[in-house]
Amino acid sequence: MIHSPIHLLTKRFNKRYFQANFWLQCLFILLLALVLFGPILNLLIWTIAERWYFPHALPTQWGLKYWHQVFNPYSDVSGSLFNSVFIAVLTVIVCLLVSVPAGYALSKQTLPLRVFWMLLFLLPQAFPNLTVYINIARIFYDFGLNGTFLGVIIVHSVHGLMFSIWISVAAFSTTDPMLERASRNLGAGPFYTFFHIVLPQAAPGIIASAIFVFLESLDEFTGTFFVGSPNISTLPLLLYTASMEGNYQIASITALILLVPSVLFMVIITKFMRPDMLSKLGK
């Protein structure tokens, strides 16, 4: 190694430069953390605050009283949690029943009016949510679907189909059509081939779409509000009511419960969603 003065100088400069860089990075990360997790921190504090008044920076009384209240089997939260999960599961089933065959058909480039069908599932998203749901609620009223699970599930499914169809089409598009041919070639009919060859190939994408639909259903508020309430209460509705009543503890705990599956599934999705599939979205 050469220890020329110039060399030493650049070395020192590099060191200082890196140090400055390091502190700058720390600052940015801190700011980012504050922006991202500040509200969540506030929320976390609320879940264990039994008493917290305005001028105080922190709660005056800490405790788990509201957690006990929430997890009491007869509480509103338990009931809403059950409703939410029940609706979400059924929504996922409905969406899969539609999107798996439809996604497969739409992935074939030869299908007539392919683009039209794809756009059809985007259509409900094109209009303002509120208008769509108010109209749906009015139509459902005529059929006696307001305030029923069926009504809520239909509303959630229409919303979820957008994700599940588009992701399914992408998932089926990435499968190799030669694999299908090879199966037919060895004597398997189209249905046998679909279930034994095509579906296993598309499974990661289908699972990802199911997770998306599940999360969307769990978080859905507007549609449930117009079609389901007051008979059917889900976690987001409960969250809304609790916030409106100023019951921040219940609202915070509910929000936290809603956060758990989202974080969990996002981790799973990053595992299932392959880059090549994302590149086929909308093709």
């Binding site: 190799d176 030669m178 041919r181 037919r184």
Partner: peptide, 28 residues
């Protein structure tokens, strides 16, 4: 196609990646 009993060795082989060697061979 499934009723012809003419089998093909594909240029790309078209083996099924979710199956083992034995499952691939025994599929038909």
């Amino acid at each position: 196609a499934e009723k012809r009993n003419i089998t093909m060795v594909f240029q790309s082989y078209a083996l099924w990646p979710h199956m083992t060697v034995a499952q691939n061979i025994g599929y038909g």
